[in-house]
Computed example of a mutant assay.
Amino acid sequence: MQDTLGAFLPGTIIQRPPHRSEPLSGLSFAVKDLFDVGGDVTGCGNPDWAASHDTPETDAWAVDALRGAGATLIGKTITDEISLGLLGINKFYGTPLNPRAPDRVPGGSSSGSASAVAGGLVHVALGTDSGGSVRTPASFCGIYGLRPTHGRISVAGLMTQAPSFDTVGYFTRDAQTFSRVGAVLLGEPIADALLPEIVIASDCFALADAPAWDALQPVVGRLGNATATHSLPLADGELLDWARHQRVLQKSEFHATFRDWIDRVNPRFSSEVAGAFADDGRITVDELAAAKAFRAAAAKRLDDLLDGRRMLCLPTSPILPIARNARLSEIRAAVNRIVDLTCIAGLTGLPQVSLPVATSGPIPVGLSLIGWRGGDAPLIAAARTLARDFSIGLFEEQP
């Protein structure tokens, strides 16, 4: 395979065969460089991390699950440095190409995985999602992406950065493959079902820039013809408070994860990643307590709203992907805007799927559904139903 997209880490196209032949026989997959693959160091997107850690002997749970279901592992894909990013930029290994918008970023931190799938190098790719690292590149590259219910898919053998947020997610180009892989990783069938009631999160759409809003509105209108929908604001108060509290919690956790390693190794970082550690994670006890209380209240609010029978509809990202050569100030502003919406599922631990439903000119725009807690299989089934009944995918479905 020729990596024409810069999606794979140099020297990591390793071609590991499946353990068995079903039910994913014939599918190839790639894994983000946070997953252990036996015999290859887990580099975490940073050469100093790779140099200071031992090579794992066994595969991560999710890697083993896909190989055990008949899929062939092709190699390891680029991630933002130590997975702290939402745009797909890596100072050391480069920025993978966005096949749908080559002059724009692919989204991160599961950037290489999304690029490899969107560009047709593999059928499936594993990513991780803490603050939006599957959902954002799925939207930017025009593919399907799942962030599961927190804890639903094992993170064994995964380099985690913020344990109360980290999840194992994945990408595909088409809804049928999306469903097949979901059944394996969830360990349950994806049954056909009627679309549930859909709640349109009006305050989430209000945060979207005009190009994203304009692209998504026709699809949202079509949803109303397919199932019961109603529109209401998600937040009881200021929606941006959700992102503010997520930043406090996630920052506290990733500082705890990396502080000792940084102190011991003094690693090289890009200025953007180094800036995330500049204050040594100083968060007051009161700030942390307030964020934890807010998270509990937000989770209850969404659990009550969705009630095991509704799904929430919102833009995956409020912005289109920015230019590959964007200035540092634009990068920081874009990340903050993205988190304003990706924080919702991250803060509450709920499953979310990004659907490749629309474009603004040639640029993909993803629409998201957030499901009820543990409702990952119905969420994937809803994606498959929409793809079949609305022909919303940007790619033709694979057999």
Rank of each mutant, 00 (worst) to 15 (best):
Ala276Gln: 15
Gln217Gly: 01
Leu355Met: 15
His19Trp: 00
Leu185Cys: 05
Ser25Trp: 02
Leu379Gly: 09
Thr12Ala: 05
Gly26Glu: 05
Ala51Gly: 14
Thr160Asp: 00
Gln15Gly: 01
Phe258His: 15
Leu347Arg: 05
Leu24Ser: 09
Thr58His: 14
Leu240Arg: 14
Gly187Glu: 12
Phe390Gly: 12
Ile322Pro: 13
Ala50Val: 04
Ala116Lys: 11
Phe258Asp: 00
Val134Gly: 07
Val184Tyr: 10
Ala201His: 04
Pro196Arg: 09
Leu158His: 14
Tyr170Ile: 00
Gly374Met: 09
Asp174Val: 07
Arg173Leu: 05
Phe178Cys: 06
Ala289Met: 11
Ile190Cys: 07
Ala51Asp: 14
Val184Arg: 12
Asp241Trp: 01
Leu194Asn: 11
Asp48Gly: 01
Arg180Val: 00
Asp307Lys: 06
Ile143His: 07
Glu330Arg: 13
Phe171Cys: 08
Ala138Asn: 05
Pro218Trp: 13
Ile331Asp: 02
Val63Ser: 03
Gly151Ala: 12
Ala358Val: 01
Thr55Gln: 12
Gly107Cys: 09
Leu394Thr: 11
Ser133His: 04
Ala334Gln: 13
Val168Ser: 10
Ala387Val: 06
Asp36Lys: 07
Pro96Glu: 00
Pro148Asn: 06
Gly157Gln: 09
Ala156Met: 03
Ala193Tyr: 00
Asp376Ala: 08
Ser109Gly: 10
Ala382Pro: 13
Leu207Val: 03
Ile198Val: 15
Ile14Asp: 10
Thr385Ile: 04
Asp59Asn: 14
Ser368Tyr: 10
Glu22Lys: 10
Gln15Thr: 10
Gly94His: 02
Leu207Tyr: 02
Ala65Trp: 05
Gln15Met: 10
Pro148Ile: 03
Val105Ala: 09
Phe277Ala: 08
Pro364Leu: 09
Phe29Glu: 01
Gly68Val: 07
Thr149Ala: 09
Pro23Cys: 02
Asp307Cys: 07
Ala7Ser: 14
Leu97Glu: 06
Ala298His: 04
Gly127Lys: 11
Ser202Pro: 04
Asn98Gln: 11
Pro137Leu: 02
Ala228Thr: 15
Thr42Met: 07
Thr167Lys: 06
Leu369Asp: 12
Phe8His: 11
Thr172Pro: 04
Pro47Glu: 00
Ala193Arg: 15
Asp376Ser: 11
Ser110Arg: 06
Asp174Phe: 03
Arg244Lys: 14
Arg20Lys: 11
Ala358Arg: 00
Ala381Lys: 12
Pro148Arg: 08
Leu87Thr: 13
Ala125Met: 08
Ala243Cys: 08
Leu9Arg: 13
Ala191His: 13
Arg264Leu: 13
Ala65Lys: 14
Gly157Trp: 06
Gly131His: 12
Phe8Tyr: 15
Arg173Trp: 00
Leu24Val: 03
Ala381Gly: 12
Pro356Asn: 10
Pro362Gly: 09
Val122Lys: 03
Leu386Ser: 08
Ile153Arg: 11
